[in-house]
Design a binder for these strands. Structure first.
Lengths: 353, 353
DNA sequence: CTCGGTTTCTGTACCGGTACAGTAGACGCT
DNA sequence: AGCGTCTACTGTACCGGTACAGAAACCGAG
């Protein structure tokens, strides 16, 4: 088995310089069509697929891939329909530019740290701990970055949703319906869990905090003090258990505001368990307008965010940042805030009695 | 703005050779701890993050990333809970090895073709057209590959599910319940759509064909000729429309076998639309045991496949193939077939009357 | 026939690392 | 002292491309 086929191999075969072969692949207008055809034919004969991506990346300084950093638990990110739709939208927007999307964990596992050791042209930071090692590495690599669902930072472009405004609208909706005993259901991986004080919720992500703030904006305006529960994870089973903390008590709330639609789903199921009718005995409002929300029984009143638009905006912002970096121009960060709008369906009604 | 910081910059600062600096990062046991500390400190001062991934990839011949080729429509792949769970399982298994996962489309968009132009150590081919350009490029690059849900090929490792066996069990279950008028509901992007002849379903993916064959195994054994409908896409709206083709007719089937749980979901909704009670008037059996299946009303009788195990097996097979390639050893392809088992819930019952 | 402008092809110098085969000195053993 | 073995560090030769600045050939206009 001979040596590997490189540009030089082909050059020798055809009797031209290595540079000409390179041009045949990368700059077709730099040589005559007939010679190009000969070169490509020879390349094909020799089983040459195209310029080696790694070598090209080194010489050109671009790799054709961008990263996306996810929360430490990939498993979680991939079971959440909201997150996966977002990834899909990004990938779709990226496809025509020829950029591939590389998934990075913020968990640093052993000696190889993808965020430091994988060649990339730029990266999206999606709902991450901004102090994590992965984010730090990417920043220090001076890669073009875009933050999504994170605290806005002056130096990078950010994409956010009007979480606080949307949450305020959700809370006001319940207040307008006449509710005064209102529960809030959060989710987050770290303690504290169970029934907590709203002021304790400082460790969650930026979006979660904004939503909590939005709810509290409206509630405190109306002089209502909520009952707050918090549970780990977000699959429907966890909230179902946590929802019991709110519902299985004499002075139970007449309405629950949920951090997400997945959480709300858990509340609906807990209500079924406890024989509580939604929306007659209990109102439930979600967040995200997950595709499932409209299909739940009752159809979920929730706060809509346009995931497609979010993915599109994130991809566009990253592409722009990369383009500026390639051109050697200083990139002017932009801060997008996408709207969040209350969608009234069937899961919220006036309180009983 | 000065030149970029490289190993040489640091070497000059500390007064050692470039090679020693390289070792400080990549082979810590090759130099004294005290010198290593000095070098690392100097690197930190200079704002050096670590060896440039692109250069390292060229010199070492490994990139730290593996690809996964998806069906042409990324958007579709990312709204399917079965697919996303699979990706999650793969990513999770890959994380401890330090390999990142790069998403590749099989659609070749313009002049940049990720499958040809992105540096990778290996790739998974997931439920793709094996004749697509992307697969061809990866093959010709001689990358370690693993095929998932594809026609087994002697030269590469493959991961498959016992689709045919599982489908046969599903069909037999309906026959055992006494059904004789049975509909089949397939999905696939390409025509023909609508009511079709079973023999026409040759363009779908390998898994789809296996499932159809499995159903037909049991049905033809029992002398039953099914009514087959086929619709594009797989979001719940499409099957809902296609299901009407089967249900909205005088001699409508008493049972429907569905290509997937998503498809089955559409049938359940079509049944609601038409006032048909499941399972009293109509039995429905799905495939995959999507997490949603158990939560549908009625809970879906379906064929379970272990997505986690599939992701785990795929990742393990790829890692093994890459390890052999690195070692220069010929890789012996292995062909895994994971079990598929009928899970009986509430959506199938004896036919009416 | 000459001259400027293309077109087409070539040579050289990188890109930023790593592999591998040294070399020099320290140490242990006889 | 002589010799083998370590440890710690260095030098050189790649890895497989691309950028950029020429050089040779060609071509129409003056």
């Amino acid at each position: 088995m001979g040596r590997r086929v490189t540009l030089q191999t082909i050059a020798d075969h055809v009797g031209v310089s290595r540079m000409t072969v390179s041009n045949a692949f990368s700059k077709p207008d730099q040589l005559s069509p007939s010679l190009r055809r000969r070169i490509l034919a020879a390349a094909d004969d020799l089983g040459y697929v195209g310029p080696d991506p790694a070598a090209r990346a080194l010489a050109r300084g671009t790799t054709g891939a961008v990263g996306i950093v996810l929360t430490s638990s990939l498993r979680f990110a991939f079971t959440d329909l909201v997150a996966t739709s977002f990834f899909g939208a990004i990938a779709e927007r990226l496809a025509p530019t020829g950029l591939a999307l590389t998934l990075l964990t913020s968990a640093d596992s052993g000696d190889v740290i993808p965020a430091r050791d994988v060649a990339l042209d730029g990266a999206l930071i999606y709902s991450c701990d901004p102090t994590s090692a992965a984010v730090d590495h990417l920043t220090r690599r001076r890669l073009p970055l875009v933050y999504v669902d994170q605290e806005p930072l002056a130096t990078v472009s950010t994409i956010n949703v009007a979480d606080r405004t949307g949450a305020r609208a959700a809370a006001r909706h319940l207040l307008d319906l006449g509710h005064r005993r209102i529960g809030l259901l959060m989710s987050g991986m770290h303690p504290p869990h169970g029934l907590i004080d709203p002021a304790d919720v400082t460790i969650d992500g930026y979006a979660a905090r904004q939503r909590l703030l939005g709810w509290c904006d409206a509630l405190s305006e109306a002089g209502v003090t909520p009952l707050v529960a918090r549970q780990p994870g977000a699959d429907p089973e966890q909230p179902r258990a946590a929802a019991r903390l709110l519902l299985d008590r004499p002075d139970r709330p007449t309405a629950v505001l949920c951090f997400s639609d997945a959480t709300a789903h858990g509340v609906l199921r807990a209500a079924v368990d406890l024989g509580i009718d939604v929306p007659r005995d209990l109102s439930v409002v979600g967040f995200d307008d997950n595709p499932l929300a409209a299909q739940l029984r009752p159809a979920l009143t929730t706060v809509h965010q346009d995931i497609e638009a979010k993915g599109e905006a994130a991809a566009a912002a990253l592409i722009a940042a990369i383009a500026d970096a390639r051109a050697g121009v200083a990139h002017v960060p932009r801060h997008h805030v996408l709207p969040a709008e209350l969608v009234i369906r069937d899961s919220a009604a006036p309180p009983p009695g």
